[in-house]
Design a protein around this nucleic acid. Structure first.
Lengths: 190, 190
DNA sequence: GAGAATGGAAACCGATCGGTGTATACCGTG
DNA sequence: CACGGTATACACCGATCGGTTTCCATTCTC
């Protein structure tokens, strides 16, 4: 039966890479990855060219899930302001998880300081797409300067997730959404 | 003559550690560190217990310099608002440097995901002290909720430096100070 | 000048790094 | 049954990891 058949080695590797690199950083060893995924090292090297490309593929694969995490449950009936604030309520909620370590894409960008690294390119794309989402909502909400507001919201988003992930800040009192609200108001967004 | 005598091995090691770990992450090898510092590995291990403690000492040592970087040149004659905004103007200015990689303390917290690591403790202390500075200025400026405002400013500070360091945002148009200004205004700070 | 303490160069330790080579077991399709 | 593709296990490669040890030259003290 299809429901019990195991995931493909490729998917198991990508999941293991996402899990372990999120918890322990991008410096996880390949052997540990393969052990976790239950896949031999030989198999992984004929599925991926290198550890770097596998890491990039792993980030790429998690994008749809990540986008869904931040998306408003009923985007059609929500106002642009609600859609934006929902993002910040979601990271506050996610930060309650015991093993929350902040935005995985920002973490990758910080850890691999090389912007040419394949995984860095993927992470940068995610950030750009979130910025585009903010900008679109800002436009629809009638913000004075949608581009500026989107960039400000990204500062707050990354600051909040990085700080919460590092354990130097708590978001459960709505700090992030509160800060975003102040910026939305200042931008004249309805 | 005192002016030409070399710095102590200890100082050379701490400087090298700060330099290399900022550029390449905390995963720099000890051999590379010692090579850069011109100190034998044996000497370093009788100056420090381990690589971890040396990294912590390195961060500790850079605190006065870092604080001075962010401090207003004339704190006595500046308003609290000016002192706060100066911090954000400074990171915008620093981000113009070709090898700017964001706040080193936040980077360490993100890279070593272990909050018990000696270097993480130092980094956390730096963040707390910056928060205290913001809170003090917020109080003096008559902010409605100084504690909240300080936390909001920290979000923007870490978000801005992390994003600029990762190369996904530019601060040279004053984005960070502009965002801080909006929050200061929203907090009713004069 | 003898002796002790210091510190540097480099070998060495076991472990792990990213990556390969080899030989073998399982698989569905002819 | 034979086949080719895919998977595995496992040894192996050179390099590097954090850390220790040995040996020797220098320096300081008496």
């Amino acid at each position: 039966m299809a429901s019990t058949e195991k995931a493909s080695p490729r998917d198991r590797l990508l999941d293991a890479a996402a899990r372990l690199s999120y918890r322990g950083g991008v410096s996880v060893g390949i052997e540990a990855l393969c052990r976790e995924a239950g896949v031999s090292k030989r198999s992984m090297y004929q599925l991926f060219d290198s550890k770097d490309t596998m890491l990039a593929a792993s980030l790429e694969r998690s994008i749809p899930w990540y986008d869904a995490q931040l998306a408003h449950p009923d985007p059609g009936n929500a106002t642009p302001r609600e859609r934006i604030l929902h993002v910040f309520e979601r990271i506050a909620q996610a930060s309650l998880d015991a093993d929350y370590h902040g935005c995985p894409y920002l973490a990758v960008l910080v850890e691999l300081k090389d912007p040419e690294h394949p995984a860095s390119r993927v992470a940068r794309g995610v950030k750009e797409s979130l910025g585009a989402r903010f900008r679109r909502d800002a436009e629809q909400g009638g913000a004075r300067d949608p581009e500026l507001l989107a960039r400000q919201l990204l500062l707050v988003f990354d600051g909040a997730s990085a700080r919460a992930g590092a354990g130097v800040e708590r978001l459960d009192d709505g700090l992030a959404a509160l800060t975003a609200t102040a910026l939305l108001d200042a931008a004249g967004m309805r």
